[in-house]
Design a binder for these strands. Structure first.
Lengths: 117, 117
DNA sequence: CCCGTACTACGATGGCTATCGTACAAGTCG
DNA sequence: CGACTTGTACGATAGCCATCGTAGTACGGG
């Protein structure tokens, strides 16, 4: 076995066809979660939860990541004590072509408008 | 005056730069409202509230239309006793290019998947 | 084995919100 | 005017949810 043994701590994810637009939109309608997704998209690689500097406590952060995972927006895998987060780009693009990119552009624009204060 | 006199019943709308992505996504994260927006997009013209056959009562319908208006997704104008609803396509496209179209495609795909039950 | 790091679980709380029913207002048409 | 259509206002309710704090678990390193 060259790969690490499967951790007993597995996290439930929706399969591709269990992902619902309603849930995805709800997940992204929260500013904190939208920010998480934006940073994940910029990173292009999986990031641990602690890599994010969010304006909420750790328990709230856990909550947001769970919402994103359960809606199918991100994938979470344990790696030691860290939990690595990655965008489910392939699944989202297959289900809703163009949506994720449009959302990311929109988020960037909104952030730019906000900064212009 | 060839046009109708301005009704005293005017409805508050956000200006274009008051429209926030968070609010738009939140407005669209409700299945009823997403359905309203889809039908509006298909219609290409303004529709009165009563043209929609929604699985909720009239008062709830009023509520949903107000959420859509206050988030900047639709525009509402009184025309006699009817209230005409139109998508704010120009504003949304200017603010978040490609987002509305991607959302409409996504909604259509989700509906198709749901029908495949 | 003990400690530190990373994250979770649980319970509480306050606020939002989708829903409804009923009563009402505004406008149109006979 | 009076009836009807269309939509609103208001109050109630129940459920969801973002947030927190505290206590706890899992894992890796010394």
């Amino acid at each position: 076995m060259t790969t690490a043994p499967p951790s007993p701590r597995v996290l439930p994810h929706p399969t591709r066809d269990e992902i619902r637009l309603d849930s995805v939109l709800h997940a992204l309608s929260d500013p904190v979660r939208l920010r998480i997704v934006s940073e994940l998209a910029d990173a292009e690689a999986a990031l641990s939860c602690s890599r994010f500097d969010l304006p909420v406590t750790k328990s709230t952060t856990t909550h947001h990541f769970r919402v994103l995972r359960e809606s199918g927006v991100i994938q979470q895998v344990y790696e030691g004590t860290a939990k690595m987060n990655g965008l489910r780009r392939e699944d989202l693009d297959a289900l809703f072509p163009g949506l994720l990119d449009a959302l990311l552009v929109a988020a960037r624009r909104q952030a730019a408008r906000d900064a212009r204060v």
